[in-house]
Design a protein around this nucleic acid. Structure first.
Lengths: 206, 206
DNA sequence: TCAAAATTACGTGTATTCACGTAGGCTCTT
DNA sequence: AAGAGCCTACGTGAATACACGTAATTTTGA
């Protein structure tokens, strides 16, 4: 029996995965968490073989959680069950030490295959992943994870605040907020506010 | 046995719900669809008691699907399992004839209660719904469904095109695109591009 | 401890968005 | 036939966003 913990901020997804996986007898869900912090807390009391986590979660995202898990519980295998296909996140998750990656539109068979593979010490990556990584290579664009301040400002932009409003809220110069905004546009390789907001939503920031 | 069809554009949510609900013996999933069109096609060959649908789906959204279903299969009960809490959509779904409304963060117990209720001819609405509807009443804002042209332009805005670019694409004057943009901002009661993009994503337009 | 990154901020200029108004031609429904 | 809603378009002006640069201070991590 492979002991599994699921981390995702959507209750119904957790519950659905649980029901789906427990129809099999090769694994057992021993716990679930709604964010990275809960996940780490849970692991202290509940050892498990495989953690199946989303990337975008409030409080602590999957990347940071993965790093922490492998630091404190190195025998645990972390795999990613992601809702999006952002090349930067995939890379960050792999760098953090995730050994599996499955997309939301995968079949349950694929998910089960992936779980068995990572538990057996192998790596499992969705076929689509290779295409994305290939494109990333050719495109050559490095994706930087945003800093705390940048996230904060991106969040406010997505909440429909203007630069002057954000500046007032954070006790900053409008110029500073503008600089952050422009850095965000460059880092995320988008064209304007619309692109920023889409990224914020995709990445679970709002 | 209550015969259920699930409609949602996310495979893993469908599969999860299926596994979750089939642990009970009071209902059976007889089919699933990824959008409104698939749902209607499915109903032609597969009669069911309760349709459990998301609102935001590509091709045909939940509101239109609900109308069509109740037109062609009036005995079918339609309930909404929604990912968002947009007051306008809730109202539209109710006007379209949905008799149940459950949020994504509901428990499986609540979902089961809701299914039984609507099958028994009752209505079931999440408690949180009342709060939202109350606020809607006091706010008094009517939500207008967007016209085809407005949707088209909103889509392009969300794809990071500027007004001049959109004007060129659609062979329109920049002023016209600007007018549409402003009408969108007013209709959707948002402040700027960020709000428009959020709406576009929430409503499944992109 | 030294380099890299983050945070702060400014200068200058252009492009775009946003706000508020008006208005003709169009289709659809009553 | 008349009203409603949609699509089109313009005028004007202020506010905001976007582009490209520089740069000092602080924080962080190897």
């Amino acid at each position: 029996m492979i002991k599994i913990i699921i981390a995702d901020d959507h209750y119904i997804i957790r519950d659905g995965l649980k029901a789906m996986l427990e129809k099999n007898d090769f694994c057992k869900i021993v716990g679930e968490a709604a964010n990275g912090e809960e996940l780490l807390e849970l692991l202290k009391t509940t050892p498990c073989d495989v953690v199946c986590t989303d990337i975008s979660m409030p409080v602590m995202d999957g990347v940071e959680a993965t790093k922490q898990i492998l630091k404190h519980f190195p025998k645990t295998k972390v795999m990613c069950l992601s809702m999006h296909e952002e090349a930067g996140f995939i890379k960050k998750m792999m760098e953090a030490g995730a050994v599996g990656y499955v997309f939301k539109d995968a079949s349950k068979e694929e998910l089960q295959t992936a779980i068995k593979a990572v538990h057996g010490g192998k790596k499992y990556f969705n076929q689509k992943l290779f295409d994305i990584l290939l494109n990333m290579e050719s495109g050559g664009k490095e994706v930087n994870i945003l800093s705390a301040r940048e996230k904060e400002i991106l969040k406010l932009i997505s909440e429909e605040y203007t630069n002057p409003e954000i500046a007032e809220k954070l006790f900053l110069s409008v110029r500073t907020v503008d600089t952050h905004r422009q850095n965000l546009i460059q880092k995320l390789d988008v064209k304007n506010t619309a692109g920023l907001v889409k990224y914020a939503i995709k990445s679970g920031l709002i």
